[in-house]
Structure formats: structure tokens, C-alpha cells
């Protein structure tokens, strides 16, 4: 987290609060190029969907948690109906866990929970457990607009919410760092696309690391990409006699193992 925090702080120094100046709910610096206006409109509805919806949700929460609130000291976020919310990943993106409120199992009371939170927090990430009824949609949309709280919808019923002005999704995904039986996940290079009435036409898009190797969200150009598939080495065992035998196909990349070799 500290590295991500420093990085974000450094970015802020060069691009001072693009969102907060115009009364927008801030997003992570890397997402400012994608989100129209450089921030989310208070009281608006944002829809997330498809592959990468969880990461986008985390990124939006992290943006508010880190840059939101009074004078950008950090805002509060509510997460409703996502018991699998990856807190560790959100923290790596820059979120402050002490300013997150998690309601894992709201059940049928989710509209009441969202309504209660809308008065208090800057952004609510909600996965409705059922198809939202017309009454709930009207009530929550009005409450969100009244209190300036951004309602972010995810999950199977996110598309059933009328009045969503901005939809975020990712496409053209490449995971880096994993080979066949070796390596480890380093990061994902993806194109984040914003569509909807707030981003007219074909929408806006940008290639981002979501997440980067340290867990943060950064623009694709800022990182020297790690090689897609690391070179696979062979284990070389040197027995006592000094004969060299290569063992292909074992999972240790580029490392020589010496077996009792005094001459090694």
C-alpha cells in the first residue's frame, strides 16, 4: 500500500485534484482519462458489468476512499451485498480500510441499507440480490441525487437499473507473468471503456494496468511491462563426477542446482 500511496501522492502533486475542484467525486488518477470530466458526478448512477467488474468496483472505491471527502482527506464508502469484496486488493489500489463500511448480507433489506448509507458516505458499491423493483429504484435514485452519493451497481441485476448514465467495463485483457507451470500473476493490461449518456458516441477508453504488479492502478505507459511469459530455464544438476545433466521440464526458472559439487 505505501508504494501505491506514494505513487498516487506524486501524481496528485502534478495534477492537483482534477475532480474535487469542480465538485466531482474523485476517481484514481489513472482513471481520470477514462471517466468523463475526470470524476464521477455526485448523485449519479454508475453501472459495472462483465469481466473485471470486481476490479473496477475496487478501483472506484479506492479512488473515493483515498481522494474523496472534505478537502481530499479521504472519503467514506459503503459496500452492500458483496461478501467477497477483496479488501486487500482495494487497499493495494489505495483505499483506506478504516473508512470502508461493509454490509455483507443485507438480504431483502438492501434498499433500506443503501438508503441509510446514502446520507453518510460518498460512494456506495452495491450488488442487488434481486431484480430491483421500480419503487426501490426511484427512492434510491432520488436519495443518491439528494445527498450527492454515487451509486455504483454491479452484479447480475446492474443492467436493470434505469437511468444509469455511465457504464464501465474492460476489454482486450492480457494477463502478464504466468507461463505454463511457472511464473506468477504480475498484472493485467486491459482497456477500460466508459460508455453511456455521460460519455457519448463510441465512449472513452484507455489502456491501464488493472492491477499493476504492486496492486495499484496505473496507466499502461508508465510501467515497463514485464515479459508476458517468462523465459523458462532448466535445472542443471552437477553430480560428484562433474558430469552435467540437464533436467528439462522442472518448474524452477533459470536456476542452477548443485548436487554435492565441490568443483562447482
Amino acid at each position: 500500500m505505501p508504494e501505491a500511496a506514494l505513487q498516487n501522492a506524486a501524481l496528485d502533486a502534478f495534477a492537483p485534484g482534477a475532480g474535487s475542484a469542480r465538485g466531482l467525486v474523485p476517481v484514481l488518477p489513472a482513471l481520470r482519462s477514462v471517466v468523463p470530466g475526470g470524476g464521477l458526478r455526485p448523485g449519479s448512477i454508475v453501472g459495472l458489468g462483465g469481466l473485471g467488474a470486481a476490479s473496477l468496483g475496487l478501483a472506484l472505491v479506492a479512488g473515493v476512499s483515498r481522494h474523496g471527502g472534505v478537502e481530499g482527506t479521504g472519503g467514506w464508502c459503503g459496500v452492500v451485498g458483496l461478501p467477497d469484496f477483496g479488501v486487500a486488493a482495494a487497499t493495494a489500489m489505495g483505499a483506506a480500510p478504516e473508512r470502508l463500511l461493509l454490509v455483507d448480507e443485507p438480504g431483502g433489506r438492501w434498499p433500506d441499507v443503501v438508503a441509510a448509507l446514502a446520507e453518510a458516505v460518498d460512494l456506495i458499491l452495491v450488488r442487488p440480490p434481486e431484480r430491483p423493483g421500480a419503487t426501490a429504484v426511484r427512492r434510491l435514485t432520488a436519495l443518491a441525487r439528494k445527498h450527492g452519493c454515487v451509486l455504483t451497481l454491479t452484479g447480475a441485476f446492474a443492467r436493470d437499473w434505469p437511468g444509469t448514465r455511465l457504464r464501465l467495463r474492460i476489454e482486450d485483457v492480457t494477463w502478464h507473468g504466468l507461463g505454463h507451470g511457472h511464473g506468477r500473476l504480475r498484472g493485467r493490461l486491459a482497456r477500460v471503456v466508459a460508455e453511456g449518456r455521460d460519455a457519448p458516441g463510441t465512449g472513452r477508453h484507455d489502456r491501464l494496468w488493472l492491477p499493476a504488479p504492486d496492486g495499484a492502478v496505473t496507466a499502461a505507459c508508465e510501467h515497463v511491462p514485464v515479459t508476458s511469459v517468462p523465459k523458462r530455464g532448466t535445472i542443471t544438476a552437477i553430480p560428484r563426477g562433474g558430469t552435467v545433466t540437464a533436467i528439462p521440464g522442472s518448474g524452477f526458472a533459470g536456476r542452477a542446482v548443485v548436487v554435492g559439487g565441490e568443483g562447482a
Binding site: 479488501v87 441499507v113 453518510a120
Partner: peptide, 24 residues
């Protein structure tokens, strides 16, 4: 105060463990 009030309301709806804060 705002946060505490919202948390109170949710706790009356869902019980004490209904709303949580994560700690790493």
C-alpha cells in the same frame, strides 16, 4: 456523526454484526 447514525440504523435493521469495518 453521520457515519455513526447510518451505522446505528443498519445495526437496528440487521443486528450488531450487520455492518462491519475491515481490518487488515
Amino acid at each position: 456523526d453521520r457515519i455513526a447514525r447510518a451505522a446505528d440504523r443498519i445495526q437496528t435493521l440487521l443486528g450488531h454484526r450487520g455492518i462491519t469495518r475491515p481490518v487488515l
